[in-house]
Amino acid sequence: MSRAPGRVRVLLHLRAAEADVPSVEQAYHRISKDLAGTPGLLGNELLREVTDPGAFAVLSEWESLAAFQVWESGSAHRGTTSPLRQYQDGERPRPFALFEVAAEY
């Protein structure tokens, strides 16, 4: 079974000190509410690493790479996502990655 062609998932890696975990969660909820209704955004999830409680990822799904790029290049993008920017995982070469679904069962 395959997905509709063109869907893209964005994975944003975050890292927080134990004391900042509630702030990460609150920022995620605030940003998600602000992004509700964004054209092309199909949904997102906040993931917490099981073996490392300070490691998080936000996984968002977009209907296409073009839809994501339109949103990312828009003026509201940086302001809307700024509450999580301080938690981007600086130990990685890039804090985010884009994935296209190649196959699925």
Rank of each mutant, 00 (worst) to 15 (best):
K33E: 15
D52H: 12
P83H: 13
G79N: 03
A55K: 13
A57K: 14
A17W: 07
R92A: 04
A103K: 06
L98Q: 00
Y87Q: 07
H29D: 15
G54R: 01
S60V: 08
Q26I: 11
D20A: 13
G37D: 07
E72C: 04
H77Y: 10
L84V: 07
R92E: 03
A4T: 14
E18C: 09
G74S: 14
F68T: 11
H77A: 15
A19L: 08
A97S: 06
P39G: 05
R92T: 01
E91A: 10
A67W: 05
R3W: 12
Y87S: 06
V58F: 09
P95V: 00
A57C: 11
L11C: 02
E18K: 15
A76F: 08
A27G: 03
E91G: 13
A57Q: 08
L98H: 01
F68P: 03
S2L: 15
K33V: 14
A97M: 08
A66S: 13
S23Q: 12
G6L: 12
S75F: 10
R7H: 12
F96N: 01
G74M: 08
I31F: 01
G74R: 07
P22K: 13
K33R: 11
A103L: 11
R85N: 04
R7C: 11
L35H: 08
G43F: 01
E72H: 12
E63N: 10
E63W: 06
G79M: 03
E45V: 08
Q88F: 00
L65N: 13
P39K: 09
D34R: 12
G74V: 05
G40D: 03
N44R: 14
Q88T: 05
L59A: 05
Y105L: 15
Y105K: 10
G54Q: 01
L42R: 10
S82Q: 06
P53S: 06
G90H: 03
D52V: 03
A27S: 08
A4N: 10
W71I: 01
E25S: 07
A55G: 14
L47E: 01
E63P: 09
E91C: 02
G74Y: 04
V10P: 00
I31S: 06
A76I: 13
S82G: 08
L84S: 02
S23F: 08
G79A: 04
D89F: 00
L42E: 12
A67L: 10
R85K: 09
A27Q: 04
V8S: 06
L35T: 12
D34L: 07
L42Y: 01
L42T: 02
I31Y: 01
N44L: 13
V8K: 05
A67F: 06
F56E: 05
H29S: 14
V21F: 02
H13T: 01
P5A: 09
R85F: 05
R3K: 08
L11R: 02
L47H: 10
N44Y: 04
S73R: 09
A19E: 15
F56G: 05
H77W: 12
G74C: 05
T38R: 09
L41C: 02
S73E: 14
T38C: 13
E63I: 04
D52L: 09
H29L: 09
R30F: 03
L46W: 14
M1A: 15
G43D: 01
D52T: 04
